[in-house]
């Protein structure tokens, strides 16, 4: 029996080593390619070895100098939009989620139903009227146009509401006795208790914003206003003549997320699987 278990164990571990290699390989391949000259990129065949003689940092140098360093503007736009969207989104969504989770009031269930309704609606069908709205509000090609329409995130509201429902309400009463305003109770007493939810949702919103594609593609119109995914996509041509920059740019675009992920795996996983929380 022991021997059989040992065998199962070895087979499974070998299986997962193979799976891990398969899942990580595309990224390894991307990183390796980023150091290779453009004409070598599609000529590697099955050679995965690290050949230092062929490798250099030219692609990265090209990425920063070509087109007046527009890549740096994309990076800046992505960072700013992500920071603003995450900050504002956390603030507003936590407020709404808290309102729904901590109080009994008329219309509570109806509003929660609306949140679920928005959650189930594909944003893609709203693109056209939203685009027209952005034009009349003068938000086309601006950060505000990318951020504002989706800043109250239904998934984050849902998550905060579930989280707050599970918190003891005694703290709120204690705050009231001590003469705290309702808003003061939220900021001084409840927000600190909601820290884990802020962690998970912060990561979810930041990643959504960093990787967001279709909406910024519509709102952002000029090259220097683009975010990283849109900018990189604009380099894709049928002739494949931009791969050197494209690949180096892609590598730099994932590095921040991977670093944050490796330090906060738990919050990441609970954030990205937030929809699975049952109410």
């Amino acid at each position: 029996m022991k021997k059989k278990n040992m065998l199962t164990s070895i087979v499974l571990i070998l299986f997962f080593i193979a799976v891990s290699i398969l899942f990580l390989f595309p990224l390894y391949y991307l990183v390796m390619a980023s150091f290779k000259p453009a004409d070598e990129l599609f000529r590697n065949g099955l050679d995965f070895s690290i050949n230092l003689d062929l490798m250099n940092l030219n692609n990265y140098r090209l990425l920063f100098t070509d087109g007046g360093g527009v890549y740096l503007s994309w990076y800046k736009n992505s960072l700013l939009i992500t920071a603003l969207y995450t900050g504002l989104g956390l603030f507003l969504s936590s407020m709404v989620g808290y309102g729904l989770g901590a109080y009994q009031f008329k219309g509570r269930n109806f509003i929660f139903l609306l949140v679920l309704f928005v959650l189930m609606m594909p944003v893609e069908i709203l693109m056209l009227p939203l685009y027209k709205l952005m034009i009349s509000l003068g938000m086309i090609n601006k950060y505000s146009g990318v951020i504002l329409p989706f800043v109250v995130s239904p998934i984050a509201v849902f998550f905060f509401r579930q989280f707050v429902s599970g918190l003891p309400k005694d703290f709120m009463d204690a705050g009231r006795i001590d003469g705290c305003t309702e808003i003061g109770i939220f900021f001084r007493i409840m927000v600190p208790l909601m820290a884990p939810a802020f962690g998970a949702m912060g990561i979810l919103l930041a990643m959504q914003s960093w990787n967001n594609f279709i909406w910024p593609l519509i709102v952002l119109r000029t090259n220097e206003m683009l975010t990283l995914p849109i900018g990189l996509a604009s380099m894709l041509t049928p002739y494949g003549n931009n791969y050197d920059k494209l690949i180096a740019g892609s590598v730099l675009a994932i590095i921040p997320i991977i670093i944050v992920f490796l330090f906060n795996q738990r919050a990441f996983i609970s954030g990205l699987t937030a929809g699975g929380v049952k109410g």
Binding site: V19, F213, A233, G240, S250
Partner: peptide, 20 residues
């Protein structure tokens, strides 16, 4: 390892695949 690809944007992932 299995989770890491979920972090990439669809464009970066697509560039990987176009390359391979």
């Amino acid at each position: 390892s299995i989770f890491i690809p979920a972090l990439t944007s669809v464009i970066v992932a697509g560039v990987c695949f176009r390359l391979m």
